[in-house]
Design a binder for these strands. Structure first.
Lengths: 250, 250
DNA sequence: ATCCATTTTTGGTACGACCAATTTTGAAAT
DNA sequence: ATTTCAAAATTGGTCGTACCAAAAATGGAT
């Protein structure tokens, strides 16, 4: 006996509903499937949380576009709870970024087409011209690194990296903004960015990989200092509070 | 203004609810959160579909065990449709595996503890002793590589790699089984596996990285041949069929 | 033909009732 | 006192209705 969620998916494919199409009103659909609207809505929520359906209040329910940008946002979401709880999580993320991004730069140098190169230089200009707002700088920085991933012409690589960026964002948002506020850091970062782009534009793959490695080592080093500082502060303030603890076991 | 789902997650962490703990009855919880039970249930469904909560009819709602195996199964699921459609997808996956797995071997050599080493040798024995069944061999192979990722002590790395394995499985399941059926291939693979493990056990990081790189290059090379062969066959048979095409746009 | 107020459609939420599986309770039997 | 087992209370699952708010469809005035 199939799940109602499965029945719904089956209904979607059976009625040739392409991405972007609107599926029948909930009241109608519930009647067709022979269930109450409450139940139907609960299963719809499941598909929504899986990114298969988007709802527009007053408009209707729609098959979600496979919009890669959204799909990958969803891709690593299950890890978010961990990212928020585990303290050293960001280090893991940065470590894996080191692996991926150096290779991304390498392949970008080998495969970047004219359009890729234009997007890359545009992204570089954007990060250099980013305003003093740290949040804006962080966004521009993420866009820049994703442009590299895009130029590598490896879809999986791009999607995984985008997911990692989001994880990093929820994990250490405040540290990231602090990073851009440190003196001389922005200049150093931009210099590193520029050398990466130059290597890619020139097609020097090994040089691009090396430049990316240097860049990420630099970032990791700075972030480690910032986090250590923050940890010291937390420890200091924690001493002034009683930590309440509840026993929730039956 | 936070989403109700976020409120719920916040409630869970705020009340120190460990995995396996039971959260309050829906009626109570709904009252505490100031929403109707309908709404609460819909958001609970979201968390259920994300694998964060399990419900037992008549028993209660429980924080799901972090059953990493399930969470990560879900992690890269949104990419499956792409994996099934795009033809050259598996090449992207293998490329990114080359990045991640070489570093995984590297870090494993640096950080593997006694327990990690035992699991690693056990996994190696398992792949060597795997029966002739190609499917069994594939599973053992995946378990072996995940053991390396586990020994790297990088949670994100392990989860991403597990996701990639699943993608690879849905993408080229048949090619994978063919790989294990080629003459002399299993022996070569096992020799490579063994050299990776030896390097990790000895703590020789660079050697481990190199061994992993050799292994993945070998696999990629064999898979390319297999896929080229399969593509040739598909082209040949395609000539005898009319390819039906449906237009699903409104 | 265009524009704007009105009506209709449609998703979002709330409340109440009942069913079914589970857990708890408590009395009877040992 | 312990065990056993049936009745009662608890709790998730489903249904139905009513109402609100946003979006879309309608239709008349310009």
């Amino acid at each position: 006996m199939p799940t109602l969620a499965e029945q719904l998916e089956a209904f979607i494919v059976r009625s040739h509903l392409a991405p972007g199409a609107r599926l029948p009103p909930e009241r109608t659909l519930a009647a067709d499937l022979g269930v109450s609207r409450s139940r139907l809505r609960e299963t719809i929520q499941q598909l929504v949380s899986r990114g298969l359906i988007v709802s527009r209040r007053g408009g209707g329910n729609f098959i979600a576009e496979p919009a890669a940008d959204l799909a990958l946002d969803q891709a690593l979401k299950p890890l978010q709870p961990l990212a928020e709880s585990e303290a050293g999580y960001w280090r893991d993320i940065l470590e894996i970024r080191q692996s991926l991004e150096t290779d991304a730069a390498y392949y970008a140098a080998l495969r970047a087409g004219q359009q890729d190169k234009e997007r890359l230089t545009a992204a570089l200009d954007a990060v250099c011209a980013a305003s003093d707002d740290a949040a804006v700088q962080s966004r521009a920085d993420a866009a820049f690194h994703l442009a590299i991933a895009e130029a590598s012409h490896n879809l999986v690589l791009r999607q995984v990296m985008s997911g990692l960026f989001n994880l990093l964002k929820v994990s250490i948002a405040e540290s990231l903004t602090k990073l851009h506020q440190l003196p001389d850091t922005v200049e150093a970062l931009n210099a590193q960015h520029r050398s990466i782009v130059e290597a890619i534009l020139a097609g020097r793959a090994e040089e691009a990989r090396h430049a990316a490695a240097l860049h990420l080592s630099f970032v990791e080093d700075r972030l480690r200092h910032i986090e250590e500082e923050a940890a010291r502060l937390r420890r200091a303030t924690a001493l002034r509070h009683t930590i309440p603890q509840e026993d929730t076991s039956p």
